[in-house]
Amino acid sequence: MIGFQIVNILIILIFIGLFILFIKHAGQYIQTRVRLSWLLGAYLAVLIISFLLLNIIPQEEILARDRVGEEELEIAARAERDFYSALEEGWLDQLEGVYKLGSWDFELEEEEEWLLIRNGDETHLPFTVIIDREGDPGRIQAHYYVTRTIFRQVDVTPELEPPHVSFEGNRLIVEESEWQEFEVASFQREFVVRQFSPGKPGVQEQVQPGERVTSVEGARIHSTTGDVSVFGEQALYLKVPEDIQVGHSGFPGQVRFMEDLPR
């Protein structure tokens, strides 16, 4: 432990030595004072221009996007909590905050007696498949439902994509859509200013809307730095004819039949 600290201190001392040498000799290779002044002036100009540019950036472009309000957060959290019961009990249309991202309709051959739902990927699919046998004869209807996904109070639901669903022979092939990256940049006030913000240093960013939203009992709300995230639920809802045999492959524990569910 002490040895590790000594190595750290040596590194710091070397760094400090280089720093001093640098400060002492910086500028000596630039021969004239006029050039030095120009360099200083140019640096200041770039910084001032960047400040002016920051202030002409349309604020609504940034502000309009983020900060989902508390009420919407509650709706999203409630939808996430009640999603499966609503889907399985048939009252999904009454649940606020549920979106249909994709729908497919396939015709079945008359003589088809069985259907295989196959995971077209080798990976685990991040949603459940619910099968309802009360579908129209000769047709398979698929709907992909999601509840809102809110990351750091930014609604990213429009970024979500449905899976790829295709029908070949008597196989319904479900494949995951491409993995998506959602990157956000957040900003902190300078540490020299944070101490003057109301409350303790750093608390400025720890306003806890999540605590108020947790009034939605049982909802999974993720609050790390004070900003709330609600990760939505997703499900592929299939309506198949009553008389068809349904099998599945590649969905360990992810396929549920409506008739098997407790009502």
Binding site: E159, E183, R189, T224
Partner: peptide, 25 residues
């Protein structure tokens, strides 16, 4: 960035980078 954290749900990766002037200061 001076800090970052990430998480994922479904098939979406969330990644947040934090920026500040602390290092400059």
């Amino acid at each position: 960035g001076v800090g970052s954290h990430g998480t994922s749900t479904g098939n979406i990766n969330f990644f947040e980078k934090t920026f500040s002037s602390d290092i400059i200061i």
